[in-house]
Design a binder for these strands. Structure first.
Length: 602
RNA sequence: GGGGGCGUAGCUCAGUUUGGUUAGAGCACUCGACUGUCACUCGAGAGGUCGCGGGUUCGAACCCCGUCGCUCCCGCCA
């Protein structure tokens, strides 16, 4: 998607600063912008003028410019908004600036007008090469200044382009963009809701949507057939680097489709977005793997495929070993699984291994069993328990290190996932330039609480089971697979979706399995059930985390760098000062009183 | 809810380990000089509740306790 600048000419300006090139030489132009920097050489002065297109150098030469104009330009302060008029000239070879896109030309000014006087900026917009960014707190407090930085401008502009590509791609394929409510019904499940008190209904509340899930299903029931929305979603949970309380997702739903249809469409959309971001995409389609296989090979449902380090099952090698830890794990039906690290014996010091083990313990493992294969011999505390052929059976090469976890898979998988990521990072096996997509399919429908045996929906309670597994719903629900799919990229989840339950009888049964009785189901999700009973087409969809995609494609280090006005990790908006206390009278109108010492009014 | 890091001039940082005269540097700012710079250069100047509160001490930016803010992580995020 290209943007031309010809439509940006106005009564005040003819061109954008950063867009001027050699082809403009000889033209008389009017520009408006912010003073990025200025250099007064005494008599001769330069101003670097900045707008959304970039920076151009404007020169003020007494030979071609009235003295009062030169003097005004020489005295101008940073970030002042000025209008200038002048001629585009080619710079002599020796005076070109290759660091500037407009560096082959400059504008020789004939007039200079301050239209937006500026106090010195509280945080720098033009930064010296060695100076760090201002503290995050200050960047958020003075957001309008931070957003002037070319890096953030690029991010926000890329975000816009990604949004337009999304709209165009989906609209061309028959998807209607339909808005769903921001004031919705509170949902007791899942993340905490942001609640909005109702003035006209004392004691009742709206909730801001965590996702438009139920609305988009009802749109399918209504026959719109294909829907999308670039939807704002809200979750009142603690924040992370890649998590904001309000975030944007590309929300998609379609009727009379299969999981296959959705995945094909989604690959096209993601490919279009990646190309817009200037990235390569695989020409052969995105690889797929079942959930069971990703857990077996990587211990995670969003494995980073940029490096190997696959998990191996070492149970048979340990089967006869007279070693209490592995023997009891095997006797209790667990396994010994591990990761073979080529060259790890030398590359990972004892200290590194200790740190990796500490992380594995944080992930739930009791410990790591270490085995080295050096100069044709096994080394390490467990070597003596293993038989002659163990190295060969485990596939160990000279110089390898292997790290094992003994126990049930639900312990070893997350621990080895952590070990895998740790080792890859420490041994520099992660190539930042590489792009590895992966569809993960065949998720289990339910997650069974090992303590209580209670079932919880892995995805959400509207996800359809695989038709061939429906017979297991009553006998062995934890074995039922869902018609659900996630798309991962380099170890992070970009989005996920499912085919939904379109049969009201199946939906009711699903609620029952989740321990939601009929009365509760009707109270919470009655409007969905009624809709399904009114005749629902088979339907399904997917949702992508739009901010996260923008973050990946702009190489931003934080979600905050691709959102114009983000919140802090305490969910505050430092610029405008939200949230804020409100006058007691407003609370009274809303039938609300504040407990304890949190009271007070604005 | 828990743990780690950070908080010194408008901004970026040094100084805190081992308490000791008037808390320094670069950028920005003000004044002056300079006609091809592009992080212009040079000279001069102004600018500080050392996040806040309390304690220890003859003496605290520095040690102790508490607290606030930002940030990263765990929990949480169907």
């Amino acid at each position: 998607m290209t943007t031309t600048t010809e439509h940006l000419a106005t009564t005040h300006r003819t061109d954008l600063c950063g867009a001027l090139r050699l082809s403009d030489v000889g033209r008389h132009v009017r520009l408006g912008g912010w003073v990025h920097r200025s250099r007064d050489l005494g008599g001769l002065a330069f101003v670097d003028l900045r707008d959304r297109a970039g920076i151009v150098q404007v020169s003020f030469d007494p030979k071609s410019c009235p003295p009062d104009v030169c003097a005004a330009a020489a005295a101008v302060g940073q970030e002042t908004v000025v209008l200038i008029e002048g001629d585009v000239v080619a710079r002599p070879e020796a005076m070109r600036n290759s660091e500037l896109a407009s560096g082959d030309v400059e504008v020789r000014a004939t007039s200079f007008t301050v239209v937006g006087p500026a106090t010195p900026p509280a945080i720098p917009v033009a930064r010296s090469r060695t100076e760090n960014l201002a503290a995050e707190e200050l960047r958020l407090r003075h957001r309008f200044l931070d957003l002037r930085r070319p890096e953030l401008q690029e991010n926000i502009i890329l975000r816009h382009r990604l949004m337009q590509v999304t709209r165009q791609f989906l609209s061309e394929r028959g998807y209607f963009e339909i808005e769903t409510p921001i004031l919705t019904k509170p949902t007791p499940e899942g993340a905490r809701d942001y609640l909005v008190p109702s003035r006209v209904h004392p004691g009742e509340f709206y909730a801001l949507p965590q996702s438009p899930q139920l609305y988009k299903q009802l749109l399918m029931v209504s026959g719109f057939d294909r829907y999308f929305q670039i939807a704002r979603c809200f979750r009142d949970e603690d924040l992370r680097q890649d998590r904001q309380p309000e975030f944007t997702q590309i929300d998609i739903e379609a009727s009379f489709i299969s999981a296959e249809d959705i995945m094909t469409m989604a690959e096209g959309l993601i490919s279009a977005l990646w190309r817009e971001g200037g990235r390569d995409v695989p020409s052969t389609g995105f690889p797929r793997m079942t959930y069971a296989e990703t857990m077996e090979r990587y211990g995670s449902d969003r494995p980073d495929l940029r490096y190997e380090l696959e998990i191996i099952d070492a149970s048979s090698a340990f089967r006869g070993a007279d070693f209490a830890i592995t023997r009891s794990a095997l006797e209790q039906g667990g396994r010994v699984r591990g990761i073979r690290i080529p060259g790890g014996a030398a590359a990972l010091s004892r200290k590194h291994q200790d740190e990796i083990e500490a992380d594995a313990k944080k992930a739930g493992a009791m410990g790591l069993l270490r085995l080295k294969y050096v100069n044709g011999a096994l080394e390490g505390p467990i070597a003596k328990f293993l038989g002659e052929g163990a190295a060969a059976a485990l596939g160990l090469q000279d110089g390898d290190l292997a790290l094992f976890v003994a126990g049930p898979d639900r312990i070893s998988s997350p621990a080895l996932d952590r070990v895998r990521q740790d080792v890859a990072r420490r041994m520099n096996l992660v190539s930042e330039a590489e792009s590895r997509f992966l569809w993960v399919t065949d998720f289990p429908l339910f997650d069974k609480d090992p303590a209580t045996g209670a079932l919880a929906a892995v995805h959400h309670p509207f996800t359809a089971p695989m038709s061939e597994d429906t017979a297991l719903l009553d006998s062995a629900p934890e074995q039922v697979r869902a018609q659900a799919y996630d798309l991962t990229f380099n170890g992070t989840e970009l989005g996920g979706g499912s085919i939904r339950i379109s049969n009201p009888v199946v939906q009711s049964r699903m609620f029952a399995l989740l321990g939601i009785d009929d009365a509760t189901a009707e109270a919470r999700f009655g409007f969905l059930l009624e809709g399904l009973r009114a005749g629902a087409p088979p339907h399904g969809g997917i949702a992508f985390g739009f901010d996260r995609i923008a973050m990946k494609l702009s190489n931003a280090g934080s979600l905050r760098d691709v959102i114009a006005f983000p919140k802090t990790t305490a969910a505050r908006a430092l610029f405008e000062g939200a949230p804020a206390p409100v006058p007691a009278a407003d609370l009274s109108d809303l039938h609300i009183s504040i407990n304890g010492d949190h009271g007070g009014s604005a």
